[in-house]
């Protein structure tokens, strides 16, 4: 107890409280949490990847089509990071262009997903065909929901920026939305490999 009393303040660290650090800490912790969320769904899919009953299995995947939509989502990460870059430099005009581009690419991906789902249903794979179908639709569906939320957030950013109400210190800023968007992208990188490429 004596030694503890003798601690001097040489290990003073920066405990200052810049708002960005607080928010990014929360966002990264949230993304760590999301890793478990998608981990549980990916595992469910892996468990049921061959449990196809009388319905179709992974053979109905259209790899060229899915590769194209994967590429679209990857490129949306590029436009997102460029938007972030512009906003960091204070160039909101340029930044908005990249934000809108990101939102459009995200919407394109979603449209592709809807098309893909429709095709699969026509070919006889629904959520109640087999555990394979249930887990495939749940995993890709929840990912699509994340993309949709991302598009909503991007649109709000554009809206706030246009109205002149955007500031890096406001509750929601480009950097945070970018982190979320890139995370949704890396989840798709995993899904593309694990669900599509490894199963054909």
């Amino acid at each position: 107890m004596v030694s503890e009393g003798a601690v001097v303040d040489h290990d003073f660290e920066d405990t200052g409280n810049p708002i960005h650090r607080v928010r990014k800490t929360a966002m990264w912790a949230f993304l760590g949490s999301e890793a478990f969320f998608f981990g549980a769904m990916i595992s469910t899919f892996l468990l049921y990847r061959n449990t196809i009953g009388d319905g179709p299995g992974a053979d109905i995947f259209n790899i060229p089509f899915t590769s194209a939509s994967s590429f679209v989502l990857l490129m949306s990460s590029l436009t997102m990071v460029l938007a972030d870059n512009s906003f960091q430099k204070g160039d909101q005009r340029q930044g908005r262009v990249w934000l809108i581009g990101t939102a459009l690419l995200g919407t394109t991906f979603l449209a592709g997903q809807i098309f893909e789902f429709t095709e699969f249903v026509h070919e006889g794979l629904t959520i109640s065909t087999s555990p394979f179908g249930s887990s495939f639709y749940m995993l890709t569906g929840f990912h699509g929901l994340h993309v949709a939320v991302g598009v909503l957030l991007l649109s709000m950013l554009v809206f706030f920026s246009l109205r002149g109400r955007y500031s890096p210190d406001s509750g929601m800023n480009v950097e945070l939305v970018a982190l979320y968007w890139h995370f949704v992208d890396i989840v798709w990188i995993v899904i593309f490999t694990v669900v599509y490429l490894l199963q054909i």
Binding site: G32, E34, F36
Partner: peptide, 9 residues
């Protein structure tokens, strides 16, 4: 914060 979730999962 991130890797603890990723590695743990």
């Amino acid at each position: 914060y991130f890797l603890i979730g990723l590695a743990g999962a």
